[in-house]
Design a protein around this nucleic acid. Structure first.
Lengths: 284, 284
DNA sequence: CAGTGGTCTAGACCACCAA
DNA sequence: TGGTGGTCTAGACCACTGC
């Protein structure tokens, strides 16, 4: 057996996963354990090509914070030397991470950790765009924090965030206005532990996407999200906040956002006015 | 100059785009025309790596119908021989086409032209899923064609389909029911020319996705779509068709679907009930 | 068993960027 | 000018499929 596929990661600076001779077999040794990774069931599939193992190792370094959002990671040649594989194999691993928007390649400069700050689209996960013009034509949104409190997770929030009912959570409520018009009313729930110390003041003072603040202040990087969209009517308070009647249909957009390791770290429910905007989706 | 980058495609069976010596330069010859492709402005960017040219040639063959949806395309080796490039270059071209869901690779079998028929997800572009269970748990949708008529394009439809106002279009109206409950009311507009001969009977008789019928009967393959989603209230007839009150908020989902060559070939507006379903979206 | 796509490597050269 | 990512090639071997 040449490649110890399940060797535990030895740490961020030394991952001797491969010790190939120049003509070594490229694939998993069939004498290894069968795919069922263990009694826990949820294990990762045991067989995995080398470039995917490299991908996992890079992912682990990202999770561990070895390279921070916005920073460059080592060059492909350096990573190839570290992992004792060819540049092509590292390249394929990085290709997938770039396709997942975890890394950003810049020819001639290097490969960088993606970040919610300093990317030209202000809100990467916000799909609401104006009927006329594009997202930038309205300028930055006005953001007003209405409420920020600590409370115990409801059953629904607990389920979404993989907490237990009653665990401490932070609840935010805010209004986003575009072109001076209140357009989005959002409730946001965050797990109390990772976001200890987050206050309305810090949010108000911070001038940038909320997810960028999460990265820099709490080390929480959102990389993926799921949304459930419905049409609803607002209650009295919601309609007042958005300046519409209670008979005005609104989009209810429920989002759960996930970090590198796939943990749900935020749930939010937004009410979107769609009289001057629409939710845009590309299908492929 | 080694590679005639702008040589017109010589036809599906002979595309002598490359005549490299074994150590030839890999990139565009800088002595070529500058990137501005011509006075028309909209031209494709003049510089393009070899694998992307191969991709375009394969795309042209798909458009031309050289390989039909569901069929296998030639093997990577065959295509490499045809285009006089290495297998790796063909591979990269196919990789991108597979990522775009135009081709489907099956290890050991070949590479196949994607199709709306015979894919396990019944409706690839339909993002409405039940609150409980998954899309398959409800079984196939009941489809009822309510209306099918030829008329002249309104300004809005003409704009979406790149027609002129007053051009002939086909208008369909149908209701989709899940678990016996009417859930989606859809108006569909199709350009009259390409869909000449489409009737309500043919749609009713056909047992499969509408887009699959478009492929087999009209040679129109939808590969991409854009949706604009809003929350609305139905009018009297719409509410009756869906079995809800006129005060029930619904999703309005406006879709424009595109073919291989990027031409818009369908517009539809769906009204979705979201009391037992939701529109699901993955953000990345 | 032959043929397909999938992985891995090694080496060459190119385009882009910053110093 | 040197370093980065980007492209292209050639050859080897592996995994999967179907005959």
């Amino acid at each position: 057996m040449i490649r110890p596929f399940n060797t535990p990661c030895a740490g961020p600076t030394d991952n001797p996963i491969a010790m190939h001779s120049s003509t070594s077999a490229a694939h998993a040794d069939p004498s290894r354990d069968p795919p069922a990774a263990g009694p826990a069931g949820q294990g990762t599939p045991a067989f995995s090509p080398l470039y995917r193992q490299i991908k996992e190792l890079i992912l682990k370094s990202l999770q561990a914070g070895e390279w921070k959002p916005g920073e460059a990671i080592p060059s492909e040649m350096d990573l190839a030397a570290r992992f004792r594989v060819s540049q092509g194999t590292v390249r394929k691993a990085i290709d997938e991470l770039a396709a997942d928007h975890l890394l950003i390649r810049r020819q001639g400069k290097g490969t960088f950790v993606a970040t919610h700050a300093e990317q030209h689209v202000q809100y990467r996960f916000l799909k609401l765009v104006p009927d006329f013009g594009d997202a930038n034509s309205e300028g930055p949104a006005d953001r007003e924090i209405i409420d920020c409190r600590r409370l115990r997770a409801s059953a629904e929030v607990a389920r979404a965030l993989a907490l237990r009912t009653g665990d401490a959570v932070l609840q935010l409520r805010r209004v986003l206005s575009f072109a001076g018009e209140p357009t989005i009313l959002e409730d946001i729930w965050l797990p109390g532990g990772p976001f200890k110390g987050l206050t309305a003041e810090r949010l108000t003072d911070y001038d940038g996407p909320m997810y960028a603040l999460f990265e820099t202040e709490f080390g929480v990087r959102m990389v993926r999200a799921q949304e459930q969209i419905r049409a609803v009517l607002p209650d009295a308070e919601q309609s007042r906040r958005l300046g519409v009647t209670t008979q005005t249909p609104l989009l209810s957009v429920e989002r759960v956002a996930f970090t590198y390791d796939g943990k749900a770290m935020e749930m939010r429910r937004g009410l979107y006015r769609t009289d001057k905007h629409y939710y845009r989706n590309e299908l492929q």
